[in-house]
Design a protein around this nucleic acid. Structure first.
Lengths: 236, 236
DNA sequence: GTAGAAAGCGAACGATCGTGCTATGAAAGG
DNA sequence: CCTTTCATAGCACGATCGTTCGCTTTCTAC
């Protein structure tokens, strides 16, 4: 009978197996973000954790199952580090801005060793059919939809001009986030985040209704209608 | 003496070795764009070309050398398919727009099987120090600089407002290109290109001087100050 | 035509890949 | 305490990785 272990699970107390499984995934997610989900190797992962290959393997049964679990773990981390903090802000344009801010922050904090996990794995698996690809695509879609959703809500609140195409806005905001991650990781240059934030504010300002423009203006330095020159801080 | 083969080389006629080497790289570049530069395997590449592993290997001497050659070949293709066509346009904003157009076009034409080669390999190698990474970073930088350069030239021509931060503009245009590639490959949805082009035009329109605005307006459908709703064509 | 260089092939190397099978230790239930 | 279950370890497998070496074929220079 497994009644006790079931109860423990419900109480949040993890069984021994679930605990090491989580430790495995914790390490795996960082390796995968740097080396890729394919470059993540069972032997290498076992070494890093001082475990036997077979003992680790038994937790998943196949490499694909491990990859799926890793993606799931990465999603949990993304939710904890980005989604939840952003969702503390009030709904509407403020939350949309918070979502972008938290996202850029999470990239800059190197939450994953090798940059945003989902961007890396999306590109790695985009031409490799299978469950892993589908899962990644679904999660990417969710985040994109969340951005668009919040933009639409901002419209119903009268904070965003109703003529704005929210799908287009979400696409462009998402593009700025992606570019920041790419630029930061390939050039090791934190200016990427300044530029991304500048772009985000510009996009939002462009569609904001006049009364909201003032409140947004208070949060940041003023900016003329054309893109402002940012002083080069010369960060490597 | 190798005088004759030297002369042949100068005449553009390739030696036998150089010819097969080129065929190898041609195939390698497509595999690498889909499977990654690490997923590109010498045995698999040899199979695809009906060659022996060792015969193929002899052309490069090491896998890293092969990877470097593949990146070089990808650069040649990028120059032929994107840079040269765009550089036929007159300098200034027109050429800047052409650069973005050719770039998006090249992604949509699936010039590389697995999407834009450089985006994939940049993300794959961004946390993997070595010559390959450095080469990719350098080429990425060049393209970004080319965009900024053209924007600056547009300023000297009086086509672009001098207050525009050209680095910021290049960053945002580049972001739209990257996002289009990402979106198209992960969602198999060509609407990515419409959205990217909409964004590009919006960015350029935002910084263009009044007299140029008219000529740009002739090239495309008119568009109010806020982002216009694009009808969903429901592709795939 | 013949010598020598260049190009390509086949077999094999040690390492590492994912994946089984079996044994052993720890924990849990009765 | 005994038994059953679960977590982990050890070992070995076939496949494939990058790489080496020696041999054969093909081309080129004189």
């Amino acid at each position: 009978m497994k009644a006790v272990s079931e109860i423990r699970k419900q109480q949040g107390r993890e069984s021994r197996g679930a605990k090491t499984r989580d430790e495995i995934l914790q390490a795996a997610v960082h390796i995968a973000s740097a080396e890729g989900l394919q470059g993540l190797t069972i032997g290498g992962l076992a070494d890093e954790l001082n475990m036997s290959k077979s003992g680790l393997f038994a937790h998943f049964g196949s490499k694909e199952e491990l990859q799926l679990a890793v993606v799931g773990k990465a999603r949990d981390i993304f939710v904890r580090e980005v989604v939840e903090p952003a969702y503390k802000s009030e709904r509407g344009l403020v939350r949309l801005l918070a979502m972008m801010d938290c996202w850029l922050d999470y990239v800059g904090r190197n939450v994953f060793r090798g940059g945003c996990f989902f961007m890396a794995s999306a590109i790695e698996f985009d031409s490799r059919p299978g469950q892993v690809r589908d899962l990644i695509a679904g999660l990417s879609r969710s985040w994109l939809d969340a951005l668009e959703n919040e933009a639409r809500h901002a419209q119903t609140l009268g904070q965003l001009d109703k003529r704005v195409d929210t799908a287009q806005l979400a696409f462009e905001l998402h593009a700025l986030g992606h570019e920041a991650n790419w630029y930061y990781n390939i050039f090791q240059d934190k200016r990427a985040f300044d530029q991304a934030r500048t772009g985000v504010l510009d996009r939002l300002r462009q569609g904001a209704t006049p009364n909201l423009l003032r409140s947004l203006g208070e949060r940041t330095a003023s900016r003329q209608t054309t893109t402002r020159k940012t002083k080069r801080k010369g960060q490597r």
